[in-house]
């Protein structure tokens, strides 16, 4: 089999896959932002999964390790969806997750929490990411949404130069 493949090596383009310079591209800024957010979500999710104890300690939230690991799984799942062909669903799930994160941080113990500063910092970071997520979601929707305007009229495009009856005649007579 390999011999046949080698014998037909003549069919392989020698100059293939050498890009000299790049021009326009289909992946717009919203798509690239979504991709970045998807990878960020996966990285954060892994961090929450494997470093839940440290995170809990840093935020003064001992006893919440299980919740942090759960959020890690959520981040990874939404990251995978965000990296898929249709990132909009992933970004929407990220926005929902951001809301949960914010609520959780707001509910974190404040009185007597020596790590209050870290909690505020985390809150600030989550709000920042939420803003990015919302911007990305809006941009993706604008870029990909199918317009709801009037339907283009293709009713004159039968493809049969002699009309539908002509097509029927072709079928009956063969010419």
């Amino acid at each position: 089999m390999n011999m046949l493949a080698k014998a037909t090596e003549i069919t392989r383009p020698l100059l293939d896959s050498k890009v000299l310079s790049s021009g326009t591209r289909s992946l717009g800024v919203p798509g690239r932002l979504a991709r970045g957010l998807g990878w960020f979500g996966i990285a954060l999710g892994v961090l929450e999964l494997v470093g839940s104890k440290r995170l809990a300690r840093a935020l003064g939230m001992r006893g919440y390790e299980g919740l942090i690991r759960g959020y890690g799984v959520r981040e990874i799942a939404s990251g995978v969806v965000t990296l898929s062909v249709n990132p909009a669903a992933g970004i929407i799930s990220r926005v929902a997750g951001d809301g949960l994160d914010i609520l959780t941080l707001l509910a974190a113990p404040q009185q007597g929490n020596a790590k209050r500063g870290n909690v505020r910092l985390a809150l600030l970071a989550v709000v920042g990411v939420t803003v990015l997520d919302v911007i990305c979601q809006k941009a993706l929707a604008d870029r990909h949404a199918r317009s709801r305007g009037p339907v283009r009229d293709y009713s004159d495009r039968s493809g049969f130069p002699n009309g539908l009856s002509g097509a029927g005649a072709v079928a009956r007579t063969g010419s």
Partner: peptide, 25 residues
């Protein structure tokens, strides 16, 4: 020459690439 090339999911680009040439008779 100009050509449309694949660079990953969702990413088609109009690139400049070498012109093809005869490789087999």
């Amino acid at each position: 020459m100009k050509a449309l090339t694949w660079h990953g999911k969702g990413d088609i680009r109009c690139d400049t690439v070498p012109d093809p040439r005869i490789e087999h008779p």
